[in-house]
Write a protein that binds this DNA or RNA. Structure first.
Lengths: 209, 209
DNA sequence: TGGATTTGTGACAGTCACTGTCTTGAGCAA
DNA sequence: TTGCTCAAGACAGTGACTGTCACAAATCCA
C-alpha cells in the first residue's frame, strides 16, 4: 500500500495540480485546456481524468471524500460538531499539507501560499465554486447519519443542522477569503457559528467573549 | 411586456420542460440529448440553451434567480427569516404554478404531479443535484445582505446563518422527498428548522406543538 | 533471481454539452 | 402599411469527458 506505485501516484497528482494552478494563474481557468495541463505535467490527459475526474476537481481535490468513515467518526464528536469543526480547522491551518517538497516557500503561520492558492478559485471561478458546493453536499450526507445517531435530534433536524454546519463553514471561509486571509480561518468559523451554538448544548460550557 | 412574444416564450419554455421531463422519465436524464429535447418540443437546440442555459437548468429552472430584488425584499422579513421561508413554502405549495393549461390533471392538495415531478431529479440525478446546490448558493448570496442589514449579526454571522437557512431548506426538502412526499413540505421545514429558531428571537413567540 | 500476474498508463476515437456568429423572419411602434 | 427591433434558427467550432485496448512497469510468488 506504500509501494512505488503509490508514491508515483501522489507525485504525479501534486505535479498536475501545481502545473495546473500555474497555468490558471497565468491565463485564467477557462482558457487552459486539460491537454495543456497534461502536457505541462508530462502525463497523458487520461491520467488527469483518472486522478481528478473533472477539471474543477484539480482545484477542489476533495479531502473530505477520501477520508474513511472511521477517520470521520474519529474527528467528529456528534455531541459538539461545531467544536469538532473548529478543531479540524485549527489542525488543518497549522499543517502545511501541501509541503511541496523542498521548494521551501515562506514558513510563516499561513504565509505558505501553496496550500491556500487553490481557495482563491473557490470564490472566483463559478464552476469551481459549484464543484465545492457539490463536495460539501457530499460531505454533509456522510456526516448527517453520525449527527442523527445521537438521538437528540430527529432525522430531519439532523440533516438540516448538518447542512447548516457544513455550508456555514463555507460561508465563513468565503468571508475569510474576502477579507484577504489575514486572520486565521478558525476565528471566522468561531464567530460565524456563534449563533448556532444553541443547537448543541455545548458540554465545554464555553461562553464566548 | 405582455405581448405575443412573451406569451410565446412562456409557452415554449413550458413545452420544452414538459417534453424533456417526459423523455427523462422514459429513458433517464443522461440518455437524452438536447437535440432530442429540442426536436420533441419543436424548437431549435439554440432556443433550449437560450431559455435554460444548461441541460440541468431545464429541470431546475431557478425561480429564485428570476425574482427581482424588490420582490425578494418583499417576502423576506430579516427579523424572522425562518417564518418568511415557511410562508413562502406554504404559498408555493398551494399554488399550482405549473398549471399546465387545460390538461387538467388531478386537483388535490399536491396531487398534481407536474409541479413536483422535477423535484425527483433534484435527488436522483447527481448533476441536477449539483445545479440545485449552485442555485441555492446564488440565492444565499442575494439574501445574506438583507440579513446583514439588520445589524443584529456581524457580516460573517449573516452569511453563515443565511447559508444555514437556505441549505437547511434543501435538507428538509430532501427528507420530504425521501419520505415519499405525503406530508406537506412546510411541516418538514418547520420541524427541521426548529433547532435554528434561537438564532432569531422570534417576534411571533410561536412555541411549536 | 526469474517468471507469472496484476495494475496503472498512454493512445485513440467518439459523444455531446455548450459557445459564438450570422441571417432571416416575425412582432411591434409610428 | 413601413420601417425598426429583437428573437429564432442554422451552422461551425471547441473542449470536456467516456470507453476501450494494448503495453509496460510494478508486484507477487516460487
Amino acid at each position: 500500500m506504500n509501494g512505488l506505485r503509490e508514491r508515483r501516484r501522489i507525485k504525479a497528482m501534486r505535479s498536475i495540480q501545481e502545473r495546473a494552478l500555474d497555468l490558471f494563474d497565468e491565463r485564467g481557468f477557462a482558457a487552459v485546456t486539460i491537454e495543456e495541463i497534461a502536457a505541462a505535467a508530462e502525463v497523458s490527459p487520461s491520467s488527469v481524468y483518472r486522478y481528478f475526474g473533472t477539471k474543477e476537481g484539480i482545484v477542489v481535490a476533495d479531502e473530505f471524500d477520501r477520508m474513511s468513515p472511521e477517520a470521520l467518526k474519529d474527528v467528529l464528536d456528534p455531541g459538539d460538531p461545531i467544536g469538532s469543526l473548529l478543531q479540524a480547522v485549527l489542525a488543518y491551518e497549522s499543517a502545511p499539507e501541501g509541503a511541496a517538497g523542498s521548494d521551501g516557500d515562506g514558513e510563516g503561520p499561513h504565509a505558505a501560499k501553496s496550500p491556500w492558492r487553490r481557495v482563491r478559485y473557490f470564490f472566483t471561478e463559478p464552476s469551481v465554486r459549484t464543484a465545492v458546493c457539490a463536495t460539501l453536499d457530499r460531505a454533509s450526507r456522510r456526516i448527517a447519519p453520525l449527527i442523527a445517531a445521537t438521538g437528540e435530534l430527529t432525522e430531519t433536524q439532523a440533516r438540516v443542522t448538518t447542512n447548516a454546519l457544513v455550508f456555514g463553514y463555507f460561508a465563513a471561509l468565503e468571508q475569510w477569503y474576502l477579507d484577504g486571509g489575514d486572520r486565521p480561518i478558525a476565528a471566522y468559523v468561531e464567530e460565524g457559528m456563534r449563533p448556532l451554538r444553541g443547537i448543541w448544548p455545548a458540554p465545554g460550557h464555553g461562553h464566548p467573549a
